[in-house]
Lab assay of single mutants.
Amino acid sequence: DYYQTLGLARGASDEEIKRAYRRQALRYHPDKNKEPGAEEKFKEIAEAYDVLSDPRKREIFD
Rank of each mutant, 00 (worst) to 15 (best):
A9K: 13
E44I: 08
L26S: 10
L6C: 00
S53D: 02
D54S: 11
E44N: 15
K57Y: 02
E35Q: 10
P36H: 15
E59A: 10
K41E: 05
A9P: 11
N33R: 10
P36F: 12
H29R: 12
E16L: 05
N33D: 07
R10D: 10
Q24K: 13
A25P: 00
K32R: 14
G37S: 08
R27L: 15
K18T: 12
E44F: 06
K43I: 10
F42W: 13
Y21L: 03
L26Q: 15
A38I: 10
D50G: 11
A9T: 06
A48I: 00
D31H: 13
S53F: 02
H29T: 12
Y3T: 02
F42C: 04
L8S: 04
L8I: 14
A48V: 00
P30K: 12
R22P: 03
R23C: 15
R10C: 06
L6Q: 02
A12S: 11
T5G: 03
K18C: 11
D54V: 05
G11V: 06
S53A: 10
L26K: 10
A25M: 12
E15K: 07
P36I: 13
V51K: 01
K43A: 06
Y21F: 12
V51N: 11
I45S: 04
A48G: 02
K18P: 00
Y3L: 01
E15I: 08
E47F: 02
D54I: 02
E16H: 04
I45F: 03
G7E: 15
F42H: 11
E44L: 12
I60V: 14
R58C: 05
K34V: 04
I17P: 00
Q4S: 05
Y28C: 11
E15N: 12
L8D: 01
Y21S: 03
S53L: 10
E59Q: 04
P55C: 06
A9M: 10
I45N: 03
P30Q: 15
E59T: 07
T5F: 04
G11S: 10
D31F: 06
E39Q: 09
L6K: 00
T5R: 04
E35F: 10
D31L: 12
I17S: 01
Q4F: 15
G37H: 10
A48W: 00
K18Y: 10
V51W: 08
A38K: 08
D50P: 01
F42E: 06
K32T: 03
K57I: 02
K43S: 04
S53T: 11
L6R: 00
P30I: 11
A46P: 01
